Simulated assay, not measured.
Amino acid sequence: MSDPSNEMDDTGAFESGLPGFLGVIDVAISKVEAVILALGVILMAVNTCTNVILRFVLGEGLFFSGEINRILIIMITFAGIGYAARHGRHIRMSAIYDVLPTTPRRVLMILIALFTSAIMFFLCYYSVDYIMNLYDRGRILPALGFEIWMIYVWVPVGFAVTGTQYLLTAIKNVTSTDVYLSTGVVDGYADNEKEV
């Protein structure tokens, strides 16, 4: 089987596996997601550490720290699902799948990717409806004063990007002879993963 690490080139940059303009967009979205994830985790760590230090030294922490972490968790989670799908890193139950020959695995991967894509778009639709309900209620975060609907904008964006990624994975598997976990990741195990 192919080495799944082929999603990176020699410089460590993500290679899409999509042709032309779609590949350029995919790589750009991947870079934006990586920055969002890295920045989000760093900001959450700084916010939490600052809050702990201030609470220990001054006896009182930042009154808005919890709300900032809530925003960052939502952002990291929903930027992360698209990132994981793009890199073929979602958890898979593959006991039966792994013993199948290449063609049935590819067909199964197409069905899994299409089904997952449909679920992601379904959740995207309902998350937009949820955000509209929050908008209509006009609730705000008590410490920061932002309207609550603003912090949930990441939810439909994450679901839409993930749904699109799984749809592209299905298309990649239809047009390929190999089995792809995502548009740039061929199904397989690295040499160190084969050892049981």
Rank of each mutant, 00 (worst) to 15 (best):
I112L: 08
C49Q: 06
M132E: 11
E193K: 03
F115M: 15
P142Q: 05
V157N: 03
L43G: 10
V155W: 02
T183R: 11
D136H: 05
F21G: 02
Y83G: 09
V174C: 08
D129F: 01
N133P: 07
L37P: 04
I68C: 07
V185C: 01
F14V: 15
A118H: 10
G40F: 14
Y125W: 10
E60A: 07
M44A: 10
I74R: 03
A160K: 06
F121G: 13
M44K: 05
L141I: 13
V196W: 03
V99E: 09
V35Y: 14
V153K: 13
S182H: 14
T183P: 10
D129N: 13
F121Q: 14
T169L: 05
T183C: 12
R55I: 05
I91D: 04
D187Y: 10
R105F: 02
N133A: 11
L168S: 05
I29A: 14
K31Q: 10
N133H: 11
L72C: 08
V186S: 12
W154L: 06
I68A: 05
I112N: 15
S5I: 00
R92F: 04
G17S: 10
K31S: 11
S176R: 03
N133E: 15
V196D: 06
A160D: 02
L72H: 06
A84V: 03
P19C: 05
I73H: 06
I68N: 01
G138V: 02
R89G: 09
A45P: 04
S117K: 08
D178F: 00
P156W: 13
V46L: 15
G20W: 02
N173Q: 12
F146W: 15
G17P: 12
F21C: 05
T102V: 15
L39N: 02
V24P: 00
F122N: 13
Y152P: 13
E33N: 07
M8L: 13
A45E: 04
V179Q: 02
I42P: 03
Y180S: 07
K31C: 09
Y180C: 11
V186G: 05
A45I: 15
N6I: 14
